[in-house]
């Protein structure tokens, strides 16, 4: 294998890991997916067109591998404690007392999304791809990207943000909730 290709692959690992982390439920599962993706890429390196974007090519492999896994495992894996699943240290390295609660909610919310919606959400909101880049990555129309993304975020709002919001309007908030 060309060392050049391998080095470029290794240089992409942080981004692949971030993407995989947002798709899966644990660090192990994410790294396993990344390794799987890289092995696939190495085995099929001949199909990669030099000069095109390696990141797009790798992300396409990764999302296909992940969708395959989703189909295979209709059974849910064991739950991983959130402290193990995600880094709960703030961006500046300090532990933030809030993160854990919100991360827990965020993770459960992500787990409830249909895979296609989760992919779009992660591509745009985690990896920062544009709507157009996401459409190309997933080979779907840009309108579909936007509708899936809006649905995914509506679900996030509902599960992470605002389930009580309407009721709060009708009920005094200081009354203890059971």
């Amino acid at each position: 294998m060309e060392p050049n290709f391998t080095n470029e692959l290794v240089a992409m690992l942080p981004r692949l890991r971030r993407f995989a982390r947002a798709l899966t439920r644990s660090v192990e599962e994410a790294d396993d997916l990344v390794q799987d993706t890289c092995e696939r890429a190495l085995a099929n390196a001949a199909r990669y067109t030099p000069g095109t974007r390696l990141d797009s090519w790798l992300f396409r492999i990764l999302q296909n591998r992940w969708l395959d896994r989703c189909r295979q495992s209709a059974t849910r894996g064991q739950e991983v404690p959130v402290e193990e699943a995600y880094e709960v240290v703030g961006a500046d390295g300090r532990r933030d007392g809030l993160n854990l609660i919100v991360m827990n909610r965020l993770r459960s919310a992500l787990d409830t999304l249909p895979p296609e919606q989760r992919l779009v959400l992660v591509a745009v909101c985690v990896d920062g791809l544009s709507y157009k880049e996401t459409a190309e990555l997933l080979d779907i129309p840009i309108g579909t990207v936007m509708s899936r993304l809006a649905r995914a975020r509506a679900q996030l709002h509902e599960l992470v943000l605002a389930t009580e919001e309407d009721q709060r309007e009708e009920r005094p908030a200081h009354v203890a909730q059971s």
């Binding site: 290794v10 942080p14 947002a22 790294d31 995600y86 703030g90 991360m103 959400l121 909101c125 709002h157």
Partner: peptide, 22 residues
């Protein structure tokens, strides 16, 4: 929600990639 997702997963970029993966 976008900021939250970024904040939740961007720290992965700063993590050292596990040696065994490389």
């Amino acid at each position: 929600d976008r900021a939250l997702l970024r904040a939740a997963f961007d720290p992965v970029l700063e993590e050292p990639v596990p040696d065994r993966l490389v």
